[in-house]
Every structure is written in C-alpha cells, then in structure tokens.
C-alpha cells in the first residue's frame, strides 16, 4: 500500500459507523481501531512533527495518542467529530512533549541530500523555516501545524481550536506574519 499524500476524505457518516462499531464487541472494537489508526496515523504524525519539532519524539507521541484513543474510544460520546477529538488528543500530547524537550534534532536533517539547484534552494528554505518556526509561540506553531496537514479543512481546524470559522484565518495570518518576521530577523 502506498502512503496517501493527503488526508483520506472520511465523511461524518463513515466516522460515526466506525465509532458505533467500536462500541460493540471487543473484536469489532479492535478492528475499528485498526482502521482509525491507518486513516489518521499520518496526519497525526505530521501534526506532532510540526508542533514538537522533532521526528523521533513525534513517533513516540503518536503511539501514546493512539493508545489513548484505543482506551477512550468506548467513552467517546460523539459530541464532536471523531477526527476533531483525535487531533485534540494529538495536540495536547504534542504540546506536553514539546514542553518537556530540551534538545532537538534539527528537522531539516531528514531532507535527502539535494542534487539539483531547486533542491538546494528548497533545503535552504526548509532549514530557515524550521529554525524560524522553532522560535514561535506554541499557539502560532499549532495553527501553522494544523494548516500544514494536507486536506484538513479550515472548518475542521476551527473545530479543533474551538474558535469561529472566521477566526482561524486571522489566527493563521497572524502566525504567518510572525514567522515571516522571524525569517527576516534570523
């Protein structure tokens, strides 16, 4: 199976069916959980990588997030979308992980050695962007990180952050402006 580049479009009805299945017998719960894990592991990992700023730490946090999801799934009351609930768990776990970290392995090290002019330029931009991102407040990091997940709509981001839809755009542009300032300053 190839890794999906963008978020699988999981409609609310399919999410609700998964949650319903998870409420029934143990075997069905494990099966539903396996599907939830496959659907959300990549976007959750990306969110964690951006918020924490460290890839190996992010992998550990993803594991912790899905353990929590697995245990709490029978208690999930459906007062938000399943995905919103999962992203919030991920955001909380990533914030806690970031506050505990003292040293970071620079994220840009994950980029493969550039061979073309374009790749060299991209790596340079990536390095500077990652360094600038590192100096932002956690709220700015969070909003930029959520928007960096492919296919996550601004409506859903508003739900994750618990703000009106219109507010996410001003939050995003404020964070972006701050990142631009850091890029110019650093």
């Amino acid at each position: 199976m190839t890794t999906p580049r963008s978020l699988p479009t999981l409609d609310e009805a399919r999410e609700a069916a998964l949650v319903e299945r998870a409420r029934t017998a143990e075997a069905a719960r494990d099966e539903a959980f396996a599907e939830i894990f496959r659907l959300y592991r990549l976007p959750v990992l990306k969110l964690c990588v951006h918020v924490i700023g460290d890839a190996s730490e992010a992998e550990d946090v993803v594991q912790q997030v899905f353990l929590s999801v697995h245990r709490a799934l029978p208690l999930f009351r459906g007062d938000s979308r399943l995905s919103t609930w999962i992203y919030r768990i991920a955001l909380r776990a990533a914030i806690a992980a970031r506050s505990k970290r003292r040293t970071f392995e620079p994220l840009a090290e994950h980029l493969r050695a550039p061979s073309t002019e374009d790749e060299i330029q991209l790596r340079d931009e990536a390095r500077r962007a990652a360094a600038a991102m590192d100096r932002l407040s956690i709220e700015h990091r969070a909003v930029l990180s959520l928007f960096a997940i492919d296919g996550l709509s601004h409506r859903e981001i508003a739900n994750v952050l618990g703000v009106p839809e219109g507010t996410v755009w001003s939050r995003l542009s404020a964070a972006r402006r701050r990142l631009n300032d850091e890029l110019r300053g650093g």
Partner: peptide, 12 residues
C-alpha cells in the same frame, strides 16, 4: 516557508 516546512514534514 510553507513549502519548506511541508518538505520537511514529508521527509520526516
């Protein structure tokens, strides 16, 4: 910046 961060997240 967005492109750079996306490239990093994809690579990582």
């Amino acid at each position: 910046a967005r492109r750079g961060l996306a490239a990093i997240a994809n690579a990582a």
